[in-house]
């Protein structure tokens, strides 16, 4: 019995098919990566699974959690997705309410996810788990750094103790070092909580570091699915080969000598910003 199984998922906007014929299954604790270029339908797949598709999108196919089809009824879906699925969004600045301290937002998610059982979670515990301090709970999103915002976002996703964590390009707005820290955090949390991970990214390195299985998506279809090492090590499809080749990092020697005189010269430049109230 798989935790999440998606069969023949398709998403249409009018006559335009954005996602077609996508099938995947996710076991408990498994980490599955979806990789592809911008606009290839990665995010729409995630939104379809969470039932957050934008207005005007038509969905076909079936999505089952624990072999139960997800309800189409909005109210039942709202109850289900909070408890089973947690989601981390791409841009943490817009994913946090700018007018609410992040502690309140995480608290709201805890209240909504609270089943009244023994596993009652406390805000300080949750903040500590994602590497934030108690004082960060009183801050607003704009008072936190990018990495801290993403940690707060992860805390919100964890609040209802979901079985599946969907991370939609959670690191693409962060610098390289912060990216690594956030990826390590996600990896650690998935191991500790035995959560399944659906990791969506265009970055081969982060997918390689996190996921055991990977699907390559192109023009709304899976072109290649398999173990991470196999897909990246010995790509079978032309598109995957191009993707792997594009991800290679080579320093090219600069071969163009400067022509003529100096065009732009910068000396001891300083720019100050006055801090307004």
């Amino acid at each position: 019995m798989s935790l999440l199984s998606v069969e023949n998922l398709a998403v249409h906007f009018g006559t335009h098919a954005a996602v077609a014929d996508i099938s995947l299954s996710l076991e408990r604790g498994e980490r599955f990566g979806i990789i592809g270029e911008s606009g290839s339908g990665k995010t729409l797949t995630a939104l379809a699974i969470t039932g957050l598709l934008p207005e005007g999108a038509i969905m076909a196919g079936s999505i089952c959690i624990d072999d139960q089809p997800v309800p189409t009824n909005e109210r039942a879906m709202a109850r289900l997705r909070g408890k089973r699925i947690g989601m981390v969004f791409q841009e943490p600045m817009t994913a946090l309410n700018p007018l609410m301290p992040i502690g309140d937002q995480i608290g709201e998610a805890i209240r909504l996810g609270d089943t009244g059982g023994v596993e009652h979670i406390e805000l300080p515990m949750l903040l500590k788990e994602v590497g934030l301090e108690n004082r960060h709970g009183q801050r607003y999103a704009h008072q936190l750094s990018g990495g801290q915002r993403q940690r707060a976002m992860i805390a919100m996703a964890l609040a209802s103790q979901p079985d599946i964590l969907i991370a939609d390009e959670p690191t693409s707005a962060l610098d390289l070092i912060t990216q690594r820290l956030v990826l390590d955090l996600i990896s650690e949390l998935c191991t500790r909580r035995q959560m399944a991970l659906l990791f969506i990214s265009h970055d081969l390195k982060s997918v390689g570091a996190l996921c055991s299985r990977v699907a390559v998506v192109h023009n709304g279809r899976f072109v290649e699915v398999g173990g991470t090492g196999k897909v990246f090590g010995a790509p079978q499809q032309d598109y995957t080969r191009r993707l792997v080749a594009a991800a290679e990092f080579k320093m090219k020697p600069v071969t163009r000598p400067p022509i003529g005189e100096t065009l732009l010269e910068v000396r001891g430049l300083t720019r100050d910003y006055r801090q307004g109230g």
């Binding site: 709202a78 909070g82 969004f89 946090l96 309410n97 937002q105 998610a109």
Partner: peptide
Amino acid sequence: TLDFVAAARLAGLG
């Protein structure tokens, strides 16, 4: 259209 509304919806808010 901002993600925090989607996040709230995902958390189960009506």
